[in-house]
Structure formats: structure tokens, C-alpha cells
Amino acid sequence: MAEVTIGNSEFDRDTAIVRRSPGVYDAELSAGWTIIHAVNGGYLLALMGRALGDALPHPDPMTVTAHYLTASRPGPAVIRTEVVRTGRTMSTGTATLVQFEDDGTEVERLRVLAAYGDLDALPDDVRTTAKPPAMPPYEECFGTDAAPEGRPALPGSSAITARLDVRLDPATCGWAVGAPSGNGEMRGWFGLADGRDADPLSLLLTVDALPPTAFEMGLKGWVPTVELTTHIRCRPAPGPLRVSITTRNLAGGFLEEDAEVWDANDRLVAQSRQLARALLD
């Protein structure tokens, strides 16, 4: 079996783009990254990030903001990019993803504004009060296909779960056994199921790949993203990631999710905030 590496994995194949003309790309949204019937927002963000990485002169996403306009579905899509500004250390661009109805009507799915730079050129100076999330070892956490002895595994509810290696802190997955804590917290170990190491592009998936905090707050069903902003802080080291997501305020049918992603060297490699709809009964 061939070794899975960055550039040679299911994630890379499913986020592949084909340049149709300068700034315009064809893509195929894979059904393997769906939640219920919609394509996962983090996967879409990574796909847009790949197109912008081709269109802009700098290699790495630094900040990416996406507004999700309509639910994407598996199948063909077109990404259109525009270079807004280029500088010595950073460049800025926009991208839109569209799909087409059976009658040919064009429907815009999401719109992105992003700034790119070179993570390898950043200074090593780190001054932070942030700390990695405290949670049990990987082997003691819940997964979709495995759990500590005597404890139920998490229910797999969508195609995307087969492509991820997620192990949730038992303290944040009472929802899986019908006993949500009421706290807006979700923590877990994260990796891709085929063993591909993380890179800046896959971090755009990571921030939106855990179950929503709304589940642990006692809500059920789809929690669609309205807006998602992700900051990539440094290139992740090989090895499993740890993800911590918190919600402080659910009001008016909307909630925020603040995510932190830490690598195997205890470095904060990505942060995000998203606004999502809470589908209340």
C-alpha cells in the first residue's frame, strides 16, 4: 500500500481543482465530505483555499473568511477568484463557488475573502497566555469506531466521519449517550483517517470538523454555518492535532463557536470563529 503523504491522499484528491482559465477553476464536490445532505463547510473552505493558493503569489493562507450563502451539494462546481492586492509579504484575494441547477441557473454557494503569506518566513518569537486543552489521552477518548472499554462509540451520522480520525473528550460528548452536559464545549483529538499529516490547507477543514457545540447544549440536528473566519498561525508539526471549541452565547437562534487547534509540539496552529444557526424546536 502506497504511503499517504501531503499531496497524495483522499483529502488532496477531493480538493483537487482544474484551471479552466486564469482565476477560474473547475471542481468536483465529493459526497464523501457531507453532513446529512450538505457538503461540510470546512471541506469547502479548504477547496477554496486551494484555488486561492493557485491564484495568489504567496503560498499559505493566513486569514480566510467565508460567508455561506446556500447549502452546497455533491457534484460539479466552479470557483472564480480575483486578486485584490499583492504586496511583498502578503496578498489578498476573493473567491466565489457556484453550482448550477438542472435548468442551468447559477447559484452562488459561498464567498471568500482571504489574505495569503509565507508561514515559513514568520519570526519565531511567541508570547502567549494560551495553553493547549487539557483532555485525556487519545486511547481514553470516544471515537466513531472505537471507545474505551465498556463505553459506547459515538454514533456515525454522516459520510465525513469515515474520512476523519476523531476522538472526543468524554467530558464533552454526553450528547452521544443522551445526557448532554449543557455546556457549550467540544474537545478532541483530530486527524485524517488515512494518516495524512496536517498542513495549512487541511487546517481549514479541521476548524469545522468536530461535532457542533450545540449538541452538548442539548440541541439536535444540523447547525448550518453562516460565517467562518480562520487564522492560520504556523505550519503544524506531524502528528495528531488537538481541537477545542467553545460557545458562550446562544441567543436569537444563533451561536458562535471559537476554535483553537494545537499541534503535537504544543503550538497553537489555527484559530477560528464562526457564527452558526441553531435550529431550535
Rank of each mutant, 00 (worst) to 15 (best):
T70I: 02
I17K: 07
Q274L: 03
T96F: 04
A259Y: 13
A71Y: 07
Y138Q: 09
R248A: 15
V18S: 13
R50I: 03
P200H: 04
A114N: 01
D118T: 00
A77S: 08
L69W: 00
V98D: 02
T230Q: 05
V261P: 13
F142K: 14
G221S: 13
E28R: 05
D258H: 15
A51G: 05
L164S: 10
R187D: 15
D124H: 11
L154M: 10
L201C: 11
D12P: 04
P170M: 06
T86C: 11
L113S: 12
R242D: 12
T230C: 05
H67V: 01
S91D: 07
S72Y: 06
T92R: 12
F254C: 10
V39M: 00
D26E: 07
R187C: 15
D120N: 09
R196V: 02
R187L: 15
P180Q: 09
L119V: 00
L201N: 12
L279A: 13
A193G: 08
T92F: 04
N265P: 06
V24L: 04
T225F: 13
S202M: 06
A71F: 08
I245A: 15
I245L: 15
T172I: 08
W33Q: 03
F190D: 15
W222K: 09
E108T: 01
T128M: 12
A264M: 07
A114I: 00
D120V: 04
E101S: 04
V83T: 14
L47K: 00
R50S: 06
I36T: 14
W33M: 02
T96Q: 13
A276W: 07
V226K: 10
L228T: 07
R85M: 05
